[in-house]
Amino acid sequence: MTAVILGLILGALAGATPLIFAALGGLCSERAGVINLALEGFMLVGAFGAVLVTYVTGSPLAGLIGAVIAAAVFALVYAFLCLDLRADQIVAGIVMNLLAAGICAFLVKRIWNISQNSPPVEKLFSIPIAFGDFRREISILVPVAFVAVIVVWFILRRTVFGLNLRAAGEDPSALVATGVSPRRVRYFALLCSGILCGLGGAFLSIGYLNQFMTTITHGRGFIAIAALIMGNWRPVRTAAACLLIGAAYEAGYALTGFGVPEEVWRMLPYVLTIVVLCVFNIAVRPPRALGRF
């Protein structure tokens, strides 16, 4: 029984990890006032970067750095489109996801001459968990995700950049009046968003799995947005929301053992996301200047 519960908890943690990274990425962007529906694409590019660099160098650590850089560059493209070229943020976000899918699929085919899946690569360092007979491993990125929550909280609350970021998301004109450029602040916010999503992508491809698949993100970027809304754009609450969704997913998985069709738990996170959106939309308040200049 302990083993089952431990398995559930670890499963929930692993399920929540990519959501936490992506949701924190969305938080950085949206608290600065930029709508970000491109989290899915940022993660996909990160996941691909991780596998590619690991494949070339043989080092998953280099792969992690590759993931972060790839996703950050992609995020800066998004920033340029939204902040300088004034593309519609919703349209640009959706389309960036499709562009990411196109680029990754194109490169997978060219590099490994197969479609959809990359060959297996070495995984990132894992922490072994032993408790009695129970043996499991969790990726190093799982605790990193929780550290990231604290770091993001600290940056937002305690640093000059965080203060400027929050002001940019609430009232950019107040920021301009003090001599700080909201555009610059938002560029850095999207850079953070890219870095965090890159970590999330790396977790999927070299932390949880050991290969890249073109469908590896599977809507997680959008589930993360729902978690962000449920967490009222606050780091700790958002992470809690991610854990809840991760746990529900794991619990659903466990139910398949009791004759519930597999499809039901596969649908669960998406259904849950819709419910979360409907229930929490009333009680939360988005950043006032979200999507505005």
């Binding site: 305690r158 640093t159 950049f161 400027n164 920021l175 009046a177 700080v180």
Partner: peptide, 10 residues
């Protein structure tokens, strides 16, 4: 806002 007292960005 804009000019808080700070050290190393904190």
């Amino acid at each position: 806002l804009g000019v808080p007292p700070s050290r190393c960005g904190i």
